[in-house]
């Protein structure tokens, strides 16, 4: 045993109170019941307890100081079984945290998982135990506006080089996820394959925009077509359609082509196509200039009148 004064960190002439204080301070830190499994703390505590036993007894302390006994000459009484010896065994279940008024015990599966995480989440999976369905595979696919409206079949090249023919149904929305059953990762031990989940992105169209089931379109017309009316061809997702522009149509007039929007699907009826007329003058010829110079409108119109009263 080392020098008891050094063990307790006190001077040779320390008072009994100093020794007691030093002992308490160290014992608090190294008490075996408070440090289960820490062999170093246990050994240290034995030294501290022995040093305290020697120095707290005035007679023993005096003999040690006079050199009549060395530190080994006084062994502390062997320690009784501590609380630790009981608490670590099944007996300790009696004082399991939170078990006052009724013993709880054993492993809580959630706790098991939170402590040992990966080990038991992996082990709990039905791995090697029987058929298991393969995982779903996720892909994304960008399709043209018209293919999404009309439906199409597109070939998707997978990361591994294989290809997958994806049938895009008519009226497919942007953000729609197609599920191809059994086209995902293979199953294990004869289990079914997972599904392929394909997120569809619809590329914008140069002229058409989609508004739910309806489609909108800015449709350029000539001055003559606007004023005099007449048959014109209107592009629609399903192909060009002939219609009449009524006479005296103006810039911004909206014409509706019933049923020419997004095709119907299931219980959803087909949408309409709304064409907004955009009067396009183009490069005026001399005749038009000559006419307009001599033109005196019967009713003088000021299209900016509303702006003047309400700047």
């Amino acid at each position: 045993m080392p020098n008891p004064y050094e063990t307790l960190g006190v001077a040779r002439d320390a008072s009994a109170d100093d020794i007691r204080r030093a002992y308490r301070k160290l014992a608090k830190i190294h008490h075996p019941d408070l440090n289960p499994g820490n062999a170093a703390a246990e050994a240290k505590f034995k030294d501290i307890a022995a040093a305290h036993a020697l120095l707290s007894d005035p007679e023993q302390r005096g003999r040690f100081d006079r050199g009549e006994i060395d530190a080994e000459g006084h062994e502390a009484a062997p320690r009784r079984p501590g609380y630790r010896e009981y608490a670590e065994t099944a007996t300790g279940q009696r004082y399991s945290a939170g078990s006052a008024g009724g013993e709880t015990g054993g492993w809580d599966p959630e706790d098991l998982e939170s402590i040992f995480g990966s080990m038991f989440t992996e082990a709990n999976r039905p791995r090697n135990q029987g058929p298991a369905r393969g995982a779903d595979a996720r892909y994304s696919l960008t399709t043209s506006f018209l293919d999404a409206v009309n439906g199409a079949t597109t070939r998707l090249t997978l990361p591994d080089g294989s290809t997958l023919d994806v049938k895009i149904p008519p009226a497919t929305d942007d953000g729609h996820i197609l599920r191809l059953r059994g086209k995902g990762n293979p199953g294990r031990n004869g289990g079914p394959a997972g599904d392929a989940l394909i997120a569809i992105t619809v590329a914008p169209h140069q002229y058409f925009t989609r508004d739910g089931q309806d489609i909108r379109l800015d449709l350029p017309i000539t001055l003559q077509e606007a004023v005099l009316g007449g048959p014109i061809e209107v592009p629609t997702p399903g192909g060009a359609v002939r219609m009449r522009v009524p006479p005296h149509s103006d810039n911004g007039t909206i014409l509706r082509l019933r049923g020419r929007g997004v095709p119907g699907r299931g219980t959803t009826p087909a949408g309409d196509l709304y064409a907004t007329l955009r009067v396009t003058i183009g490069t005026p010829d001399e005749a038009l200039e000559t006419f307009l110079r001599s033109w005196k409108p019967a009713t003088a119109a000021n299209p900016r009148q509303a702006m003047e009263t309400n700047p």
Binding site: D33, L34, P36, G37, R84, A87, E88, T89, A90, G92, Q93, Y95, S96, A97, W107, I115
Partner: peptide, 13 residues
């Protein structure tokens, strides 16, 4: 005591 009991629970486990 609460902390001590939890430590011993852990050690038993």
């Amino acid at each position: 005591l609460g902390l001590l009991d939890q430590i011993y629970d852990l050690r038993r486990r």
